[in-house]
Simulated scan of single mutants.
Amino acid sequence: MSGDRAVLVERPGVHRLVTRPRPEPGPGEALVRVAAAGICLSDREVYEGRRAPGYARYPVVPGHEWSGTVEAVGAGVDPALLGRPCVGEGFRSCGFCERCRYGETSLCTAGYAETGFTEPGAFADRLLVPARLLHPLPEGADLRAAALLEPAAVVAAAVRAGRPRPGERIAVVGAGTLGLLAVQWLASASPAELAVVDPRAARAERALGFGATRALGPAEVRAAHGGFDLVVETAGAPTTAASSCLLARRGGRVVLTGMFAEGAAGIDPVHLSVSQLELRSVFGASSAAWADAVRAFAAGVLDPAPLVTHEFPLDRFAEALALVGGGDPAVGKVLLRP
């Protein structure tokens, strides 16, 4: 039996490219040949040992943003999946707890388990996943772009929580991968204004090509306080949760999607209560949000392809990882291509 290559992070700061036996799908499982896998800041957190306790398990093969083609299926799995291009949910929700029964699979109470963090991920030739988590894509789908459907599903969850309506004034805070995908998605909701807030002028200006109507730098933000019906925060920077609430009008809506670290600035409870803000947060994406993202991608509403700027083979993982979060405005989404 031929072997598969995988990037194994043995412990924080230590990795190697290993060859392992090719996985065989068991009952209810599917074996996917990986076409592309995205690297994000949370992968760097795993590598550097900065992931919150309980949200990573070593040794681990990272990779939670991926696309591929179903190569084999186990017992009980529809054989029609064979040869289908697909993406897959990362959370290994149980499907039986009360939250799962309500369709809130990202809130599963059975314990945290996620592909690429506690379960083997997609920085490998092949990936073994529960078939129930797969979302088939149309034949001929751009699998390079489809690797970004995981962050797109997070954006879909934020859009579901934010409930944009035509003619509203909307702000997106942060112009990274999540921010640009959010701009592209929210532009389809016909807002009266769609502003992007980012201190990095080059990134903020890039959002104009994704459907934003204006870019706000630090000098313009204060004048924009209280000016938006909906604010979607995507940056996860130390001050952006608090500053996003200041951008919303009284009675407005704020959705936090960025991953914050300990020590981030708190939200002023007086402002929150007096302004009667509706505040929601997003961590990952439910099955419904995944379905929204796949449908938007298939319909052409969402095109993540322009976000990809760099592609590397598995054996250049260290070089690829070093680009992520380095601050270079020329670096967008970085992919591994097994």
Rank of each mutant, 00 (worst) to 15 (best):
P218N: 01
G211W: 00
R214M: 12
G174P: 05
P199S: 06
R214N: 13
A175C: 12
R222L: 15
A195E: 07
G227Q: 05
L180S: 06
G176W: 06
V172S: 01
A175Y: 01
F210A: 12
G227L: 05
V183H: 03
L181D: 00
G179D: 00
D198M: 07
A201R: 14
G211V: 08
A189D: 02
A192K: 10
A215N: 11
L230M: 05
L216Y: 09
A187R: 13
A202S: 15
V183K: 02
A202F: 00
G217E: 05
L181M: 05
R165F: 04
A175G: 10
G217N: 02
G226Q: 10
A212R: 09
V173D: 07
A189G: 03
V183C: 04
A195G: 10
R169S: 12
A182K: 01
G226H: 06
A187W: 00
R165M: 11
R206D: 06
T177Q: 07
L181F: 04
F228Q: 11
E168D: 04
A175D: 01
A215I: 12
G209M: 08
E168I: 03
L216C: 14
A171F: 02
E205A: 15
F210C: 08
A192Y: 00
P199N: 00
A223T: 01
F210Q: 04
A207K: 04
A202Y: 01
R200M: 14
V221I: 13
L186V: 07
E168V: 04
L181K: 03
L194S: 13
A175I: 09
E193R: 15
G179K: 00
A182T: 06
A171W: 07
D198G: 09
D229R: 06
P218K: 04
G174Q: 04
A175T: 03
P166I: 12
P166E: 13
G176C: 02
D198R: 05
V221L: 13
P191V: 06
E193M: 09
A201S: 11
S190Q: 14
G179T: 09
A201V: 13
R169N: 09
S188N: 03
A223C: 08
V172L: 10
V173P: 11
G211R: 08
V173Y: 13
T213W: 06
G217I: 09
A187I: 03
E220Y: 02
H225G: 04
A219W: 03
G174W: 05
A192M: 01
